[in-house]
Computed example of a mutant assay.
Amino acid sequence: MHYLVTGHTGFKGSWLTLMLTGRGHTVSGLSLDPVAGSLFERARIGELVERDHRVDIRDAEATARAITETAPDVVLHLAAQPLVRESYRAPRATFETNAMGTLNVIEAVQNTPSVKAHVVITTDKVYRNVNQAAGYVETDPLGGFDPYSASKAMADLLVQSWVRSFLGTPTAIARAGNVIGGGDVCDGRLLPDLIEAFSEGRSPLLRYPESVRPWQHVLDCLNGYLSLADALLGGRGTGEWNFGPGPDSFVDVAHVAELVASLYDTTATWTRDEGDHPHEAGLLALDATKAESELGWHNKLTFAQSVGWTVEWEKATQSGADARATAAGQVADFEVLA
């Protein structure tokens, strides 16, 4: 099976390429260039890719040409401007990439006869967040406070409208939240900041230590995306789907920092960052009951295991282990878990 991954040079896209090739699939990619020091570079992911298109999805013509020329069986659309804080600095680019870029991809897929299934990745932040303790379900209202969240809600609604208005490729929407794993270098994300600080014996600064997030390992999340793609290929699975961890993984930022510190065996402790920061949700969680009951998907890793695997990968590569071999080893270990 030939998969096209948009955003394949990113953190999720790199792990997804490893997972797909590990399962024997052919993978092509469509993305911007990777950031310096990324997992894509460190693990030489480009060597695994059949066709490597460096395209900005805001360019409709180039996006359509790349998808049509590749002629994949499945498209997994991950390409996005993924950062809340960046969306405040560059709101126009965020809306253009996440909303109009998604339109360009879905239109190109519609016009590519080879594509049998299309999964569009949005986010847990598409929901109208009222800080409720219960996880949001797929039928809850959408919203979006910050430009990133609003742009992804727009993309989500755009896809829903498209698939209800036009006959074409079986398409589904996957919503997931805070994923963690080795090799993440995105600016302002918690685990990369904690790992950098504690590995150097420094005290990290936390913007919102009381904020609760549903922490999930990237491989659990990606396994959900592929379960959904398999469902589409089997003639079911259209609509919207949540892929998030259970309540045991709803943990506040301070607790995460303390666990990472213990894994680095350091006496350094976190410090509250008293600066002026943009709005972030205090509590945001998903209810993945639908995916569990209808797709047979479930999280394989607990919260502690997810953090442990992340730190284990970073420690190994910091000690000189090959980044791709270490990541591929974790993929293989994950695949055999029940």
Rank of each mutant, 00 (worst) to 15 (best):
G135W: 02
P72G: 11
A62G: 06
L259F: 02
A43C: 03
C186Q: 13
G181R: 05
T123Y: 05
T139K: 12
R272A: 14
E314A: 13
A36M: 01
W162P: 03
K300G: 10
V55A: 05
E294Q: 14
R213G: 03
P209V: 06
D230T: 07
W15P: 01
T302I: 03
V84G: 14
S199T: 06
N299R: 14
N223L: 00
R65D: 09
L48N: 02
T102C: 09
V260R: 02
V179N: 07
P209F: 08
A71V: 02
T123D: 12
I106Q: 10
V185E: 12
W270F: 14
G188T: 07
D140A: 15
S28Y: 06
V35L: 15
T271L: 14
T21S: 14
G320N: 09
S31C: 12
N178M: 00
A288W: 01
T310E: 06
P72D: 07
A268H: 02
P113L: 03
G308N: 10
E280T: 11
W297V: 03
D252E: 13
L18R: 00
D276C: 10
L284P: 03
K12L: 12
V115K: 11
P247V: 08
A153I: 01
T17Y: 09
P204L: 11
R175I: 03
W309A: 08
E69Q: 12
R175E: 05
L222Q: 00
G308R: 07
K125P: 00
E107F: 01
A108V: 04
T21Q: 12
T171L: 07
E96M: 13
G24W: 06
F11V: 02
E86F: 13
A231P: 05
Y88N: 10
D33E: 15
E258W: 03
G135E: 02
L32D: 09
L103V: 08
F11E: 01
V75Q: 13
W215F: 13
W215V: 10
V120A: 13
S28K: 07
A325R: 07
V109P: 10
T266E: 02
E61N: 04
Q216S: 11
A325V: 00
N178E: 06
D230F: 01
A71S: 15
Q216L: 14
A327L: 04
L194M: 05
D73W: 08
R65I: 04
A332P: 02
V218D: 05
P91S: 10
W162E: 07
R202D: 14
D276A: 15
Q216F: 04
V119Y: 11
T169N: 09
A66Y: 03
G168Y: 04
A288F: 04
R236D: 06
G181Y: 00
G181Q: 05
G282N: 13
A261F: 01
E86Y: 13
D56C: 05
A60T: 03
T9Q: 12
T26D: 15
L48D: 03
A174W: 02
G7H: 10
F95Q: 02
D248Q: 15
P192N: 10
L78N: 13
P72H: 05
L158V: 05
V212C: 09
I57K: 04
